[in-house]
Computed example of a mutant assay.
Amino acid sequence: MSEAGVIYSDVKFTREKKANVVIFSLPDTTYSEVTISKTQPSKTESPEGYQQDVLSKRSKVTSERLALLVLSGLLVAAVIGMGVTKRKPSSTVQPTFPKTPEVKDQTCDKCEEGWEQHGGTCYNFSISKSSWNKSRDVCRAKGGDLVKIDSREEQNFLQRRLSEIMTGGEDKFWIGLTDSAVEGRWLWVDGSPLDQSLKFWKGTEPDNWKGTKGKHPDGEDCVRMGEKGGAKDLQWWFDAFCSNPHKSICEKAGVRGKFKKVCD
């Protein structure tokens, strides 16, 4: 590589005229020097070498520019990430999660052996026969009571089950309905009155029959299901003497009254 220097000077001349003769003198001379350096390829250096040098410099500049772009991109991504992290969630879009029920507030009693579960209630169909009062005592000793029928669906369930377990003859079952306290005022064992829209009396029942020659002056004060007629009478209720020995239907762990709910 070679360098060339160029020098410029500013000169002030004083003009004098004497006898038609112009004389230039230099009383005050000032000058300034400017040097311009220009790099040119050496004549001794080959064009190929010069091109390689230029390409090398361009490559270096390109690499530096690429590195700068990469660093700038990382910096922008970091700033955006920090903004997303610090940004508070919108009040109108907040995730909701279902609350897990506390186990301590649940009662999940399963039906014991000898009991059948249906609709959240456990049922026991006794095989022994006794009076209405004694049958109720047996049910209460087992943790339940004589069945209270709350719906047509429950009535249909009991009717279906009785048709499956009845052995013939007068296979009758006590339920938890009586008017022994006040004649004609039918109450369930939990003290609630009979719903007039949910009564399943057979024909002229209840008739409060007092027996042959008035043998039972108190009349028929307790209610049963099942009859000698078989399946056609299973859907109906009959009032009967509370002292008669019949089978019974107990229930417990129900959804009503003091009973506990059974987890499905």
Rank of each mutant, 00 (worst) to 15 (best):
G229L: 10
D53Y: 11
W186F: 14
E33M: 08
E48A: 11
K38R: 00
M225Y: 05
K43C: 04
T167R: 01
C222Y: 03
S151G: 01
W209N: 14
T178V: 05
S46C: 01
W132N: 05
I149F: 09
D137Q: 12
R161Q: 09
P27F: 02
W188I: 06
S56K: 12
R136Q: 15
S248V: 13
R160S: 15
S248Y: 15
H216G: 05
W237Q: 07
D105E: 04
L158M: 07
H216M: 07
S192H: 11
V223M: 04
G114N: 06
G120A: 08
L74Y: 08
T121Q: 05
K60D: 15
S42L: 08
Q52E: 14
M166D: 15
E220Q: 15
Q117I: 07
S130E: 03
D207I: 00
S248C: 12
I36R: 01
K60L: 13
R140I: 15
V93G: 00
M166H: 07
G119F: 04
Y31N: 09
D233R: 13
Q94S: 04
L198W: 00
I249E: 00
Y50K: 03
K134P: 08
R161D: 10
A77K: 00
K86I: 10
A4N: 11
D207F: 03
V147M: 01
T212K: 10
K38S: 00
K129A: 11
D207R: 02
T212P: 13
A141M: 09
D105S: 07
K60T: 15
G214W: 14
V21I: 15
H118L: 08
R185I: 14
R65G: 02
M82S: 12
G119N: 12
S59K: 14
T121D: 06
K232Q: 11
S243N: 09
T39N: 02
V54C: 11
S90T: 09
S126Y: 04
L66V: 10
L75F: 11
R87W: 15
E64V: 02
V34G: 02
S37C: 02
K252G: 08
E220K: 11
D233H: 15
W115D: 04
A67D: 11
S135G: 13
I149A: 06
Y8D: 11
A78L: 11
Q155S: 13
G120R: 02
P47S: 07
W201T: 09
Q51C: 07
G81K: 00
L75W: 12
G119L: 04
M1N: 04
W115R: 01
